Amino acid sequence: METSAIDRARTTEFAPDTVYLNTSSCGLLPRGTVDAVTTLAEENALGRRPGGGDHGTVAAARDGFARFTGTDAGRVAVGGSVAGQVALVAASLPAGSEVLAPEGEFSSVVSPFAQRGNLKMRYVPLAGLADAVRPDTALVAFSAVQSSDGRVAGLEAVREAAAAYGARTLLDASQAAGWLPLDTGAYDYTVTGAFKFLLCPRGTTFLTVTEEAQETLPALHAGLLSAQDPDAALYGPVQRLADEARRFDEPVSFLSYAGAAHSLALLDGIGVDTLHAHATGLAARFRAGLAGLGHEAVPGDSAVVAVPGLGSRQPVLARAGIVVSQRAGNLRAAFHLYNTEADVDRALDVLSG
């Protein structure tokens, strides 16, 4: 029988000693990613890497993210934190602008706007987000998949409503990119913490910006690597910023991005449609098993499964070697390429008591 791309990746890249269902918090690092980081660290220790790393590897990670998420590399800026990249968008808004967001949205998505102190923040239930867009809405900021309970936003409806009123959109894809097919080019901005379903080391984030939105976004992190010609921008203020989204790059960790280049190539080789089918299939099996035990999960077809009121069982699962998380009272389990039906059944067995 032919071995699937997921089976090959699971065999060659992963060997967890737990039942790991916590990718929503942090993804497992593939073996090749660990090797890339280790190799660079050892080269630094031996003095073989002047400057500590390779700008070409950062470019490879940028290209890999663009390819996997269906956008152009010229729209992608690299960074180290979602909040830092959201802050660029927050800084671009005129005082008094209205920012619309879901109630209970992840802190990094809304805090940079709220901390401005001179923006109008409005929060509505996720299900009513599209209907809540109005003529004076400047920006809709929301996650594709909610961190607390795995709900998937009505992406097309929000995009259409924002376009109808001339509002821009900021999508956080941190809980989605890696298993949910996304068109990042359909939003004015997207931010993605790549250490979850993209299986990159912490310290890798990606910001996408449309060409139109690039005209109003401030290059607050501008430095040597933001220049059109970095070799000519070593000293003094950068005279000419890069023509593309690279001008919004943050200074990055070469170690993190050395690993990211491998992780993104691995996922791209499998394909997001295959990853989606695998992860959501396991999640559906888990929801069905939970229902059989009398526990109703948050409905939907997300790869992230949340069970209201069951968060207190997280320590019990941990003692049994099953890694999940507790968020807002929910027991939260997330499924990815390294998980199997046996993982689902083991978790259900423990929950059955």
Rank of each mutant, 00 (worst) to 15 (best):
A291K: 14
A219E: 01
V238K: 03
V298G: 07
L220R: 13
G203S: 05
R240S: 10
V252T: 11
A279N: 06
H276A: 15
S226P: 07
L317P: 03
V298P: 07
G289E: 12
A303M: 02
G236D: 04
R246G: 14
G300K: 12
Y235F: 13
V238S: 05
D229H: 12
L275F: 00
F286Y: 14
A277H: 11
Q214L: 15
T210E: 13
P237E: 08
L220N: 11
L282G: 00
D301N: 12
E212I: 08
D231R: 15
V209H: 09
G294W: 10
V305F: 15
G223S: 12
Y257N: 01
E212M: 09
P218Q: 06
A219P: 08
G271K: 05
E244R: 14
S256L: 03
T216W: 08
G311M: 06
D249S: 11
Q314T: 07
L225I: 10
P315N: 10
G223M: 05
A258T: 00
F286S: 08
S253C: 08
T205A: 15
A279Y: 05
F286I: 06
P308K: 06
G309M: 07
A245Y: 05
L264T: 03
T210H: 13
Y257W: 03
V209M: 08
G311C: 05
V238N: 04
L217Y: 12
T280M: 03
L282A: 02
E212Q: 14
Y257I: 02
A260F: 02
V272D: 02
P218E: 04
P251V: 07
L310N: 07
E212D: 12
L290N: 11
T205C: 13
A213N: 09
D243I: 11
V305M: 14
A277E: 15
A265D: 11
V209P: 11
V238W: 04
A265R: 12
G223Y: 09
A284R: 15
Y235S: 10
E211H: 09
Q228K: 08
G259T: 03
A318P: 00
A265L: 03
G269A: 02
A303E: 05
H278M: 04
L264C: 02
T274H: 03
S263Y: 02
F254K: 00
R285M: 14
E244T: 15
G289V: 12
A213W: 11
G236S: 05
G309H: 07
D268T: 11
G259W: 01
E215I: 09
A219M: 06
A242S: 13
R246F: 06
S256D: 06
L267P: 01
D301G: 12
A261H: 00
T216A: 15
A261Y: 01
A261R: 00
A261P: 05
A227K: 04
V316E: 13
V307P: 06
R240H: 13
S256C: 01
D268M: 02
F206T: 06
T204D: 01
L282T: 00
D243C: 10
P251D: 15
H276M: 14
F286A: 09
D229M: 10
I270P: 01
D243R: 15
S253H: 01
V307D: 05
V209Y: 10
S226W: 07
A306H: 05
F248Q: 08
G236L: 04
G203A: 04
T216Q: 11
L225W: 13
F206L: 07
H262W: 02
G223P: 09
R247V: 03
L266P: 00
L267V: 04
G300A: 12
V209A: 13
S302R: 14
T204E: 02
L207Q: 10
L224N: 14
P299F: 15
